[in-house]
Design a protein around this nucleic acid. Structure first.
Lengths: 362, 362
DNA sequence: CTGAAAGCGCTTACAG
DNA sequence: CTGAAAGCGCTTACAG
């Protein structure tokens, strides 16, 4: 309810609003003496800009880039962040935002390197990026740093000085959550398989972290006597998955399966085919196919990463960062939502952020 | 990225911006002919107001009321929506919002009736209300209708024509979710107790609905052979709860306890005291005490109602409704979040809506 | 280094 | 019934 305006500060300091604005935005051209005086006043009166007025006045063009894996068939995981980005654009509303898209094949690191080789640094003021190839992304992010391009990451984290913020889930924790859900009703001696089917496990740090979290939970579970069987099927084909699963079932006393990414529906299909019942199945993300098997009861729990919201928040953070020079938290953790058949509908809405009439982005 | 302004429409229609504004806000004083013409244009060019400009220009005072149970000790459930309201006020920022508070004792219907008897209808343009006493609230809401006061409800629903929107959880569904969680690892013959400890179960429809949802789940669970024991302890005192629980444990083969509100910590305390282990315990809301027992492992799952967010969204909806004449969805369902020890931290943050730098309410 | 002025898109009296 | 003008708080050239 406070309402000190720039004009008020200016009057008190006996300067013009222009001068006050200069010190607010640290754009120099103010004598040290007046600057300090105004800074003190700003502090003292706890000046907060009126964001409506600001965004109304600030009508300059802004060019941002978004870089993520391409959506091969419209049914993949990567469709979801794309929707979040569209939502964000819509929310940003009447602004001069130009978004430049860079999509790469998540199985082709050479293609990625080629693509970033001629990234138009001059044209763009910020980047929203979902990294896949660790080394290659790191190298590119270093270039961003030397080109002074601020970057917001989502989905998977890579450390680099150009990275101003990361939006995502605590992957290790999410593995613990999966393990907790797996543990209920599990016989003390039930074996568990951890199934990795991501395109490139080695490159996705969050996939590795999920497995770690899952293992650490059971390592600390005193009553548990079963075995955890790591099963890597990266880049494997249809036929191999079925074969591998049958091997697992005949060699072990499997009580549950943890699929470390969104391809859990493929496993569900095999379970259905092979008429394996009573197997606890936990995986990630609300893909259509996953939702289908969740409803059928073949998948017990899905953990949602909120990929739409990741992208939505990421783009907003970036926008505010470059336009208003407003920093964002270094890590923006999204919750680790547990989805069952029963609470599913309330996570499928697209209204995650602008559902209430009137929530908008400055 | 569209950007037709009022001015553009006005030029095309050969009228002034004032006239266009009049038809946009339906404030009459426009000839039918021009009105229709402008309406067509608005439609054709898909005019969307710039909310920044609108809220900058619209600086009139607005008086709203909030009515909910009082917070007796600072540790109760009702502390949480209060925080959401504070957040909302902060977010609304530089506006002339005056909030009038009406707190009532949730065990005293007569006090409630007295309080609303001289509700200052003339002073206030909207009401955010968490009803407790069903009949009494209904009567009051009818008066609001005849006084043309728009109402947004949260937490618990009561039907009335003054109610423009409800923010809350699907209570029946949340009971199903609780049941699903309860069912994992439950022996086929395990009995379950449903413990009602709300101040006035009869008045809170959502408490009743939770129990219904819980029961319907088990009624449809073909393998389940146990009994569901309804246990009402409304208004019961400390000693009685312990006694009642011991009775339950000696008379039945209890596998789990479902507490239909946020007082699940009281049950957890008794379980700890009585050294009852291996009892599944599911309840509601992230009160400090509940969180403590969740961390200790005595509570297995908490379902969060997001009471802060309910109030936050409710107040925002109301604000937008009266100030901008912008309608809200009749029902704003919040997700039924499942909280375990592992994913807890990501639900405790206060950043539910304005966490990302720059999310604000128009 | 500093100030005066125009403008962002909308709303609101006021004059006719 | 309609229009012209001022103002919301901020930013941005431009002039000095």
């Amino acid at each position: 309810m406070s309402k000190v305006r720039i004009k008020d500060i200016a009057e008190i300091a006996n300067v013009s609003v222009g001068t006050v604005d200069r010190v607010i935005h640290k754009r120099g051209e103010v004598s040290a003496r007046t600057r300090e005086r105004i800074e003190r006043l700003l502090e003292e009166f706890n000046y907060k800009p009126d964001i409506a007025a600001r965004s109304l006045a600030l009508k300059r063009e802004i060019h941002l880039a978004v870089m993520m894996p391409k959506v091969p068939d419209g049914h993949s995981f990567w469709e979801m962040p794309r929707q979040g980005i569209e939502q964000a654009i819509e929310n940003l509303g009447h602004t001069q935002l130009f978004l430049h898209h860079f999509y790469f094949d998540q199985e082709d690191p050479v293609g990625f390197v080629d693509m970033v080789a001629d990234f138009p640094f001059g044209l763009v003021e910020g980047l929203l990026f979902a990294p896949v190839f660790k080394e290659e992304s790191q190298a590119f992010l270093e270039r961003c740093a030397s080109e002074q391009l601020p970057v917001v990451l989502f989905n998977s984290f890579v450390a680099a000085s150009s990275v101003k913020s990361f939006v995502g889930q605590d992957a290790r924790r999410s593995g613990c959550v999966a393990a907790r859900l797996m543990s209920y009703g599990l016989p003390a001696g039930g074996d568990l398989a951890i199934i990795n089917m991501s395109a490139r496990k080695d490159n996705y740090s969050h996939i590795v972290e999920r497995e770690k979290g899952f293992r650490s939970f059971f390592a600390n579970l005193d009553w548990y006597r079963g075995r955890l069987i790591g099963t890597d099927l990266n880049g494997a084909h249809e036929g191999q998955l079925g074969k591998k699963l049958e091997e697992l079932f005949s060699a072990h006393d499997i009580g549950g399966l943890f699929v470390t990414n969104s391809r859990v529906h493929e496993v569900a299909a095999k379970l259905e085919e092979g008429r394996h019942t009573g197997i606890r199945l936990v995986g990630y993300d609300l893909l259509h196919e996953n939702v289908r098997y969740l409803k059928k009861g073949l998948i017990d729990f899905l953990i949602s990463q909120k990929p739409e919201e990741q992208a939505f928040r990421g783009l907003n953070s970036l926008y505010n960062m470059v336009l208003f020079n407003r920093g964002a938290d270094a890590k923006q953790w999204l919750p680790i939502d547990i989805i069952t058949r029963e609470n599913l509908p309330y996570y499928q809405t697209k209204k995650y952020l602008n559902g209430t009439a009137g929530i908008s982005i400055a």
